[in-house]
């Protein structure tokens, strides 16, 4: 029992470490002064006002959202397929392939960005949204592979073999057995891919077409002038939206789910 308590305290400590900076961002969003610093000079909503009156940020937000969702779709699809090949099959050159799939992580982003640009020049292709999409997908792919692979290793093969022996074809087996078991990993991979795209700055600065801003590049532009609490206000809004929506949705789901489960008690066994 004592060990578990210790683990719990340790975890709480780590979460505090993770969230101290976030808390600071949230608090300073309401600071009155020009500078984001302590002690606070007063409570003010003026940074939010400025933020919401800034159409460029709203546009950047939409760009980032669209981009992130498309990136996570692409890289998760590619990543899951590759991971299944790597974990489920024995073949020659497997180690090499694993290394190869993870290799994009090794390339410093500046290098990757410039390299891809040089390559595009040879193809006579201008920078575009498509380049950002492909580039981000490549940046996210290794993470998806790593996450999904680690999960897949833990899934017992017997389940699949049982399904096969019961007459399911490989595709049926995948969709009815492997995929449900894999879903948490797929989800984690997709979320990872989304966040990597959503948070990327270094490569995006190079790849984005002129006039297109994502949230990080927009923030970067704001930072050039001053580290104003408006940025913290943006952080506040982003946290509220990204954490608030799922929390609310989760609460609602539980509410309806409980009703549902009461009607179909067997579901809770699966």
């Amino acid at each position: 029992m004592r060990a578990w308590t210790l683990i719990r305290f340790y975890t709480v400590f780590v979460y505090i470490f993770m969230f101290a900076p976030i808390a600071v961002v949230l608090i300073l969003a309401f600071n009155k002064a020009e500078f984001a610093s302590f002690p606070m000079t007063g409570f003010s909503l003026r940074w939010f006002e400025r933020l919401f009156n800034d159409p460029t940020i709203m546009r950047a937000f939409r760009t980032s959202l669209t981009l992130g969702l498309m990136v996570s779709a692409i890289s998760t699809t590619l990543g899951v397929m590759a991971s299944i090949a790597l974990v489920r099959y024995e073949f020659r050159g497997k180690d090499l392939m694993t290394t190869f799939l993870i290799s994009p992580v090794l390339v410093p982003e500046t290098v990757m960005a410039v390299g891809l640009l040089i390559f595009l020049r040879y193809l006579h292709m201008p920078r575009s949204f498509g380049l950002l999409l492909l580039g981000h997908s490549i940046l996210a792919l290794p993470f998806v592979v790593l996450v999904v692979q680690a999960r897949l290793v833990g899934i017992k093969r017997e389940y699949e073999e049982a399904a096969r022996s019961l007459g399911a074809n490989p595709l049926q087996t995948f969709f009815s057995v492997t995929l449900p078991l894999l879903l948490p990993a797929v989800f984690a991979g997709a979320l990872f891919a989304f966040t990597i795209s959503f948070d990327n700055i270094t490569a995006t600065l190079f790849w984005r077409p002129s006039g297109m801003e994502t949230v990080p590049t927009q923030i970067f532009g704001m930072l050039r002038n001053s580290i104003s609490p408006e940025i913290n206000a943006l952080g506040f809004v982003m946290i509220s939206v990204t954490a608030g929506v799922p929390l609310l949705a989760g609460g609602l789901a539980r509410y309806f789910g409980r009703k549902n489960r009461a009607r179909h008690p067997t579901r809770s066994l699966t």
Binding site: P246, G250, L252, A253, R261, S268
Partner: peptide, 9 residues
């Protein structure tokens, strides 16, 4: 179970 609901949402 929570995870699945969450996923769907």
């Amino acid at each position: 179970i929570d995870k699945r609901d969450f996923l769907r949402l």
